[in-house]
Lab assay of single mutants.
Amino acid sequence: KRPVSAMFIFSEEKRRQLQEERPELSESELTRLLARMWNDLSEKKKAKYKAREAALKAQSER
């Protein structure tokens, strides 16, 4: 099983909040919005998710 990506971790963290704030969005619209949010995120903020990705990857390799 492959470890999850930093973007996937970000998306899972933000998805529920966005669904509550924007219930009119379809699943595909929500996914596009999350992708745009990820792309607009600064490298400094992405680092938090990339660190979690690395930790999960290291854990799965044990």
Score class of each variant (00 low, 15 high):
30 L>C: 10
18 L>Y: 11
34 L>R: 00
29 E>C: 04
10 F>T: 01
11 S>M: 15
44 K>A: 10
53 E>M: 06
8 F>W: 13
23 P>G: 03
61 E>V: 10
24 E>C: 04
61 E>T: 14
42 S>W: 00
31 T>Q: 12
21 E>V: 08
18 L>R: 00
32 R>A: 13
34 L>G: 01
12 E>F: 03
16 R>V: 12
51 A>H: 07
24 E>V: 02
34 L>V: 13
51 A>I: 06
5 S>T: 12
49 Y>F: 04
21 E>K: 11
14 K>M: 12
55 A>R: 11
1 K>S: 03
5 S>I: 05
51 A>L: 12
23 P>H: 03
31 T>E: 11
57 K>A: 10
52 R>L: 08
17 Q>A: 10
22 R>K: 09
52 R>P: 03
46 K>Q: 08
46 K>T: 02
27 E>D: 15
42 S>I: 01
17 Q>E: 14
14 K>V: 10
26 S>I: 03
32 R>F: 05
45 K>D: 11
7 M>S: 11
35 A>F: 05
4 V>T: 08
19 Q>A: 12
38 W>D: 02
30 L>H: 04
62 R>L: 09
48 K>P: 14
28 S>Q: 10
11 S>G: 13
42 S>A: 08
44 K>H: 07
52 R>Q: 14
30 L>Q: 13
11 S>T: 14
22 R>Q: 11
10 F>P: 01
42 S>T: 10
36 R>I: 08
59 Q>V: 13
57 K>T: 11
14 K>I: 09
51 A>R: 13
58 A>D: 15
61 E>F: 07
60 S>R: 11
41 L>A: 06
56 L>F: 10
34 L>M: 12
14 K>S: 10
58 A>K: 12
11 S>E: 13
19 Q>N: 07
37 M>N: 03
22 R>G: 03
13 E>G: 04
42 S>G: 09
13 E>C: 05
2 R>K: 04
4 V>Q: 09
14 K>P: 00
54 A>N: 13
50 K>H: 12
40 D>F: 07
24 E>L: 04
3 P>K: 15
39 N>R: 11
10 F>K: 00
15 R>A: 05
45 K>S: 13
54 A>W: 05
17 Q>H: 09
48 K>Y: 04
26 S>Q: 08
31 T>M: 07
54 A>G: 10
1 K>T: 11
24 E>K: 05
40 D>P: 00
58 A>L: 13
16 R>N: 06
18 L>Q: 01
49 Y>P: 01
1 K>N: 05
19 Q>S: 13
27 E>K: 06
37 M>D: 02
60 S>I: 11
45 K>V: 09
29 E>G: 05
51 A>G: 08
23 P>F: 02
12 E>G: 05
60 S>F: 15
47 A>D: 03
38 W>C: 00
55 A>C: 13
53 E>N: 02
24 E>N: 05
16 R>D: 03
30 L>G: 03
12 E>V: 06
5 S>G: 13
43 E>V: 04
60 S>T: 12
48 K>E: 15
52 R>T: 12
41 L>Y: 01
26 S>F: 01
8 F>Y: 14
45 K>N: 11
12 E>M: 09
59 Q>G: 11
36 R>V: 12
61 E>N: 05
33 L>T: 08
46 K>D: 00
62 R>F: 02
52 R>Y: 02
18 L>D: 00
40 D>C: 04
6 A>E: 05
9 I>E: 02
39 N>S: 11
12 E>N: 12
52 R>E: 13
8 F>R: 14
2 R>I: 06
47 A>L: 11
10 F>S: 01
37 M>L: 11
43 E>D: 02
8 F>C: 10
49 Y>V: 00
47 A>I: 05
4 V>H: 05
56 L>N: 06
6 A>T: 02
41 L>D: 01
33 L>W: 03
48 K>V: 08
2 R>A: 06
55 A>P: 07
25 L>V: 06
14 K>R: 13
14 K>W: 06
58 A>V: 14
27 E>S: 05
27 E>R: 07
10 F>L: 01
13 E>Y: 03
25 L>I: 07
3 P>T: 15
6 A>L: 01
52 R>G: 05
40 D>L: 08
3 P>F: 13
5 S>E: 15
39 N>W: 04
28 S>G: 12
56 L>M: 06
7 M>E: 12
39 N>M: 10
29 E>R: 01
27 E>F: 04
